[in-house]
């Protein structure tokens, strides 16, 4: 359960957003919509405490996240709209690095299976810089399943994806929500998922 209370953020005395209140219950999927430059990405970063808020509080399972920041991070996967994989490392090395960082329990067979479902198996020993934008995006999204965290926060997850991958991603979202997971994402695309809460952010 993530509770966001009166969150505001200013940059050089310009209001980016003011008094944002969001509450995310277990098993809830929420989409943030808004114009370009309306501060969606900034909002996600402020929620994650990567950027410090001007005022307001965020509670994760009843506790203020500022006091238990690593507890909160421990149950969160954040996928930004940048490519966080290292361009000079192979797909397999990148996955191994993320796996080590998140104490993932998956073994090599599971990872190969995952790569197979995303059509990345043939690239496992290729450097990331030779992959196309959509393929890198799929690689980034693999972290969702790899890290097995409860709260997923995603910035523009549907960018660059083809129709098949979008279907797989939607299915993953539904599975996660059915397992009492929480998802918060920004997108302009409307995924065909039932019970999706839309926050219009302007």
């Amino acid at each position: 359960m993530l509770l966001i209370n009166d969150l505001s953020f200013y940059r050089n005395n310009n209001v980016i957003f003011d008094n944002v209140n969001i509450s995310l219950a277990n098993g809830q999927i929420t989409q943030i919509k808004g114009k370009n430059g309306s501060g969606k990405t900034t909002l996600l970063k402020v929620i994650l405490n990567i950027i410090e808020a001007r005022s307001g509080e965020i509670f994760w399972e009843g506790k203020n996240i500022k006091k238990n920041i690593f507890n909160f991070y421990n149950q969160t996967t954040f996928i930004s709209d940048q490519y966080t994989s290292s361009r000079k490392l192979t797909v397999y090395d990148n996955i191994n690095f993320w796996k080590g960082l998140s104490y993932s329990q998956l073994n090599d067979n599971d990872i190969l299976l995952l790569l197979g479902t995303f059509n990345l198996k043939k690239y496992q020993n290729t450097e990331t810089m030779y992959l196309s934008a959509g393929e890198i995006k799929k690689l980034e999204l693999l972290r969702l399943i790899l890290e097995q965290k409860k709260l997923w926060i995603l910035d523009e997850p549907y960018n660059h994806l083809d129709n098949l991958s979008i279907e797989i991603l939607n299915q993953t979202f539904i599975d996660h929500v059915n397992n009492e997971g929480i998802i918060l994402f920004t997108s302009h695309y409307n995924p065909p998922i039932n019970k999706i809460d839309v926050i219009d952010f302007n």
Binding site: L48, I50, F78, S80, Q82, Y83, T84, S86
Partner: peptide, 16 residues
């Protein structure tokens, strides 16, 4: 610079 631009510093930080 590289780690900062692609955001991996944040990911490493978030891993604790």
């Amino acid at each position: 610079e590289e780690d900062f631009n692609n955001g991996i510093l944040v990911i490493i930080h978030m891993s604790g």
